[in-house]
Nucleic acid binder design. Structure first.
Lengths: 162, 162
DNA sequence: GTTCGTGCAAACCGTTTGCACCGAC
DNA sequence: GTCGGTGCAAACGGTTTGCACGAAC
């Protein structure tokens, strides 16, 4: 985990008179173990490897806290599940491109997109805020071959949904 | 309802050997009564005015069908609820701007946005697909006055959530 | 008459919450 | 010792599903 993130969290807790507990430490560690997006359930599994007594409730409560502290992003990927994005703290303006077929998520930053977003938003009488931008698309491989590894994985994993 | 939509639906049913029932007719009528976004629950209320025996299950099943037929759009507005967009059939490329504070949703179309989206998507090796674009922002009124009518309505409606 | 559709209620699934105990400060 | 945190299990809310009955075709 980056030192800046650690510092932000410490500050957040201190400002509010909250405590750094064993469980929070473990869950936070699990959050920043990788740069991948994850669901609450996935985080639970990871956190329970660090501390088997971690409860679902604490995981959810810690996620709310981290999002509120601004070190963790929420991404709407559809399909009824919330995903969390540990790269948010460092690159709060990145966008997501999502394959509608295989679910692959690509993060990208583009200055043109940002400028345009800013213009549009202001033109419509709004102030740009959380800039969570989401494009659904279809990856080349699925397009050409009708299948890709992620799609295979998805099907094996949860029984050919989508 | 536009004739084109009607036609698409008829075609969809016929191609699959499905039937046009009283309930489907009523629910579809309710869907296109206004141009506003709505939730499944809101649609249920409207549909039940047309036919008090309408069941929740049929509403959900009909929604799935209409989205599949391409005459109805799904919008992720966050907050754990799915919204449906009856304007999707006529303007499949419009985007949504959402006020993070009051929940106001503005639909807009912008050719620059589309071009950029197209470029970005291709550059990343994807083929643009459902183009559901979503920007979270904050409306001027909330910005200046800290409140707007929509925010008041939202608070009255469901008890100051958000 | 066959097959698809419907209504009901129960199941589902991700998430939140009330409560009694626990532990950081 | 105090007060915030935790774990558990139950509640929640939106959505889906199994099943027997009903109705298009």
């Amino acid at each position: 985990m980056k030192a800046a993130v650690q510092k932000t969290i410490d500050r957040y807790l201190e400002d509010r008179g909250l405590r750094m507990t064993r469980q929070r430490r473990d869950i936070i560690e699990a959050v920043f173990l990788s740069e991948e997006h994850f669901t609450a359930e996935e985080l639970m599994v990871r956190a329970q490897k660090l501390n088997p007594r971690t409860s679902r409730a604490t995981v959810y409560r810690t996620l709310v806290m981290l999002v509120d502290a601004g070190v963790l992003g929420e991404v709407e990927l559809g399909k009824g599940q919330r995903f969390f994005d540990p790269n948010f703290g460092e690159r709060p303006n990145h966008s997501h491109l999502i394959c509608v077929d295989c679910g692959t998520v690509i993060e990208f930053e583009d200055s043109h997109m940002e400028v345009l977003e800013d213009c549009l938003t202001r033109r419509l009488g709004f102030r740009p805020s959380r800039k969570s931008l989401r494009i659904e698309a279809c990856c080349e491989q699925v397009r050409k071959e009708g299948i890709c590894e992620n799609l295979i994985k998805a099907r094996v994993g949860k029984g050919a949904q989508r």
